[in-house]
């Protein structure tokens, strides 16, 4: 039913020779049109054409540095304050997970732990690793690295969940001074972490993983 993978151009060429770049073709970043690079403008939408994203690794590392810098206040400072009968208590992201565990809500504790602790950490480590792979291709097989990149791209936005939880709690729990919830500074810095890791993933060019492949002895 599905007609797919119609074979590549030629059979006896090395991997790099089969790429669009080797043929002078570029894919437009804004309308996905594959075309000869010509004068550097897309025939279909007029955007500037380039073989690879400009300064991809530099930009990725810059956003990554921003994310790491924001990650520290996001974990050290409180994400929200609970005011109960005049007594204020604060909780950090990890503190919130621990409290949930103590209250035996294991399901939610796991969701929050995965979304706000595990995923951002894993994402930053993976992006740093991918930049290294682009530089030193012997570190990993391109298929593995691509899979890591795809997972990072899809999963990234779900980290926002903790910020939304704080937003909803602040709005809902305002009961005439008896109980109140106030947002803490970590909420905003955590949103910053999510944004910068998303931007880092977007500026990374996954084609760089495949570029340095004169790997004739694959399989």
């Amino acid at each position: 039913m599905a007609l797919e993978s119609m074979g590549t151009i030629g059979n006896e060429m090395s991997d790099f020779d089969k790429t669009a770049m080797a043929h002078g073709y570029a894919k437009c970043h804004s309308c996905s049109n594959t075309q000869a690079i010509g004068e550097g403008r897309c025939d279909r939408c007029g955007a500037t054409l380039h073989f690879r994203k400009d300064l991809s690794i530099q930009k990725t590392l810059a956003f990554l540095a921003a994310a790491i810098a924001l990650y520290i206040p996001a974990n050290v400072l409180p994400i929200m304050y609970t005011i109960n009968l005049g007594r204020t208590s604060s909780s950090t992201i990890i503190g919130g997970v621990v409290t949930l565990f103590e209250h035996h809500s294991y399901g939610i504790a796991i969701i929050i732990f995965v979304a706000s602790v595990f995923v951002p950490m894993a994402k930053m480590l993976i992006l740093a690793y991918l930049c290294m792979v682009a530089k030193w291709p012997k570190l990993s097989s391109p298929n593995q690295a691509s899979l890591l990149y795809r997972v990072t791209e899809v999963v990234g936005r779900w980290s926002m969940i903790d910020v939304f939880v704080v937003a909803v709690l602040v709005a809902m729990i305002q009961l005439g001074g008896i109980i109140a919830v106030e947002p803490g500074p970590a909420a905003l810095s955590f949103a910053g972490v999510v944004f910068s890791t998303m931007l880092a993933a977007m500026s990374f060019d996954s084609r760089l993983i495949w570029d340095s492949t004169p790997r004739e002895n694959e399989n």
């Binding site: 039913m1 119609m6 590549t8 790429t19 073709y25 996954s206 084609r207």
Partner: peptide, 28 residues
């Protein structure tokens, strides 16, 4: 027509698809 893979830049010749079907890159 020729489509460059967005992920690995392989140049692939794809014939027109039927409705509801997909084409995948043979390399990645």
């Amino acid at each position: 027509e020729l489509i460059a893979c967005h992920q690995c830049d392989l140049l692939v010749e794809v014939t027109e698809l039927e409705e509801g079907s997909k084409a995948h890159c043979p390399r990645c």
